[in-house]
Design a protein around this nucleic acid. Structure first.
Length: 474
RNA sequence: CGGGGCGUAGCGCAGUCUGGUUAGCGCGCUUGGUUCGGGACCAAGAGGUCGCCAGUUCAAAUCUGGCCGCCCCGACCA
């Protein structure tokens, strides 16, 4: 086979592209900067949607849909927001063969159009809170794009909530971040650091931004989800006020939050190996794939047995039976490994005779013979083991590459090897920017669980009360 | 936008420097057969405006000019 995956050690970013292409997650499109998400990739996205949508609904959120086009004037209403987004917006100037009276922005995010509607819907404290989410596509005209990680158009969910008080909105923003954390860790088996973004790194238009940050295998950071407390910024911009219980007229407090198809990129770079993708069982669209192995003389009995196993597994798992005649088993093994299916179920004539199957772990390639009578429980146990071990492996990787550093020279040296650095920072944007300029490292976030610790800013030496996480990032 | 690389069959490439028969190779694809416990083998086939446009020349994939596109690395971002 000509198509090989570039080893990670040789060129990590080529490895990434090879995996995306060869696992058939996505393909380059005729439109520059855009990608086609192929069925294998979209199935993962659907799985992500399914899990998150359930969590959103369980916490009182509902789905809705707002227009793709946003009047230019709306975009311009919130000062910081415009400034943050204007340069990367696609703008429609013509429609129906004529120039439009007012240009329409293709949404880079929907705060403005949503808050223009919230103005109509909110009068009283009785109308609050509004907890709306939408699954949508957005467009940001990026200069440099990479499959899943940064494309001109991408899919995401964006939650937009309205609350009577700051406390309530703050609580919402934090609740969602916790949903993102548990999703990342419990489903994607991807350890994340939860924390607050610095003033410099926060969302354009937010008062506070929170994020989950993950470490990829090349030790670069990837922001995997964000949640914002928007304060009254959009309420003021769109004049959204309500009369409270106490009779006072007040501005509404807002949040917004989102995760995108970028999570698929995170998945690849957290678990993949030189053979291809590895999908954690809880997020895998297909958890087991059965590969029958037959000779002409054993064909019927192997296939019949395989179908029986398939019907059994199907009761409880997402399973595929690969009974294609035109490919040999070895070819199929490789193909399913590239696609990252957690468990391969091998069934040959010898297994049929012994009334067993052979389970093969994708992550370790370990082969485990299992009698048919214990198949269901063993499969479940093994999926669980794989899920846990992927998380542990990723967590170990992160721990081994995270360093507490108090000296700027050392900071630069350690960073060169690739790492997360826990260092003191005085809180000034100037230091943050200088460090970024000199080292390309940014403050990923200020972790919620950091220890109170007095120290000196890694850059200027001014007093600091705790460490923040620095890293080079995607 | 700056730097680097590349456009020749569906994919990966050779051929270009030094212009000259029907433009090759591997993989894939089609048909038939044998195979099948880690990317099978044999045989016969199909498939090309050599990125586009001009120019030089008896003759251009090959030389010249312009344009377009893509990938990688930097300034912006989820």
């Amino acid at each position: 086979m000509a198509e090989r995956i570039t080893p990670r050690s040789e060129d990590y970013s080529r490895w990434y592209t090879d995996v995306v292409l060869q696992a058939r997650l996505a393909d380059y499109s005729p439109v520059k900067g855009c990608m086609v998400i192929r069925p294998n990739g979209y199935a993962i996205w659907e799985k992500i949607q399914q899990v998150l949508d359930k969590k959103f609904k369980e916490t009182g959120h509902v789905n809705a849909y707002f227009p793709l086009f946003i009047p230019e004037s709306f975009m311009k209403k919130e000062a910081e927001h415009v400034e943050g987004f204007a340069p990367e917006c696609a703008v429609v100037t013509h429609g129906g063969g004529e120039e439009l009276e007012e240009p329409l922005y293709v949404r880079p995010t929907s705060e403005t159009i949503i808050w223009s509607m919230y103005k109509k819907w909110i009068m009283s404290y009785r109308d609050l809170p509004i907890l709306i989410n939408q699954w949508a596509n957005v467009v940001r005209w990026e200069m440099r794009t990479r499959l899943f990680l940064r494309t001109t158009e991408f899919l995401w969910q964006e939650g937009h909530t309205a609350h009577a008080t700051e406390e309530e909105a703050e609580e919402e923003a934090r609740r969602i971040l916790e949903i993102y954390r548990s999703f990342a860790e419990d489903y994607m088996a991807m350890p994340v650091i939860t924390g607050q973004k610095t003033e410099n790194e926060k969302f354009a238009g937010a008062v506070r931004t929170y994020s989950i940050e993950a470490m990829m295998q090349d030790k670069k950071a990837l922001q995997a989800g964000t949640s914002h407390y928007l304060g009254e910024n959009f309420a003021r911009a769109f004049d959204v006020k309500f009369q409270d219980k106490d009779g006072q007229v007040k501005y509404v407090h807002a949040t917004s939050w989102g995760v995108s198809t970028r999570l698929i990129g995170a998945l690849i770079m957290t678990h993949g190996d030189d053979q291809g993708l590895i999908i954690p069982p809880r997020i895998a669209p297909t958890q087991l794939v059965i590969v029958p192995i037959w000779q002409e003389s054993t064909r019927t009995k192997v296939l019949e047995f395989s179908e029986r196993v398939y019907r059994q597994l199907k009761e409880k798992f997402d399973v595929k039976l690969d009974d294609r005649d035109q490919y040999k088993p070895g070819y199929k093994f490789t193909e399913w490994e590239i696609q990252g299916i957690p468990i391969r179920v091998e069934i040959g004539p010898r297994d049929v005779d012994a009334n067993q199957v052979v389970l093969v772990r994708r992550d370790t390639r370990e082969k485990i013979p299992v009698g048919l009578d214990r198949l269901m429980e063993e499969a479940e146990k093994l999926l669980d083991t794989i899920q846990k071990s992927l998380f542990e492996r990723a967590l170990k990787m992160r721990k081994e590459n995270t360093f507490r550093v108090d000296d700027y020279r050392e900071f630069q040296d350690v960073l060169e090897k690739g790492a997360f650095l826990e260092s003191h920072w005085c809180g000034n944007t100037e230091c943050e920017l200088k460090i970024k300029e000199e080292t390309k490292a940014t403050i990923r976030n200020i972790p919620f669980d950091r220890e109170e610790e007095t120290g000196k800013c890694i850059y200027c030496g001014q007093p600091s009360t705790g460490r923040v996480v620095f890293a080079r990032a995607y």
